[in-house]
């Protein structure tokens, strides 16, 4: 059993910026635990020496030349924005700072 807890599911929801009602939290805890339990077949394997595959093919060094291409028209870009002001995307206040 994965032993997935309600607290962990709530933490994950916060990381993913989702709000879950109490009922959703209960339901997701059960459903996610079932999916993780199904993955137990995989977890029990000893794959210590196996290399991870993140890419289906082994291409390397795919690069492009440093040459300017046209950008989008600002009016088009901002027309899609839920809120815009002064040529910018407008958002409610930002509480912390990253980077």
């Amino acid at each position: 059993m994965s032993g997935l807890t309600r607290t962990e599911v709530a933490h994950v929801a916060r990381l993913a910026r989702l709000r879950l009602s109490d009922e959703e939290l209960d339901l997701f805890t059960v459903q996610l635990a079932r999916i993780l339990d199904h993955a137990a077949d995989m977890q029990s394997l000893d794959l210590a020496g196996v290399v991870a595959t993140a890419h289906p093919y082994d291409l390397i060094n795919v690069v492009r030349e440093d040459v300017v291409r046209p950008s989008l028209d600002r009016d088009v870009v901002l027309a899609a924005a839920p809120d815009a002001e002064d040529g910018c995307f407008a958002v409610p206040r930002i509480m912390g700072e990253e980077l």
Partner: peptide, 12 residues
């Protein structure tokens, strides 16, 4: 400043 602002404008 970042704290106390009530709206932010983003330029990408």
């Amino acid at each position: 400043r970042i704290h106390g602002a009530d709206r932010s404008l983003v330029d990408y």
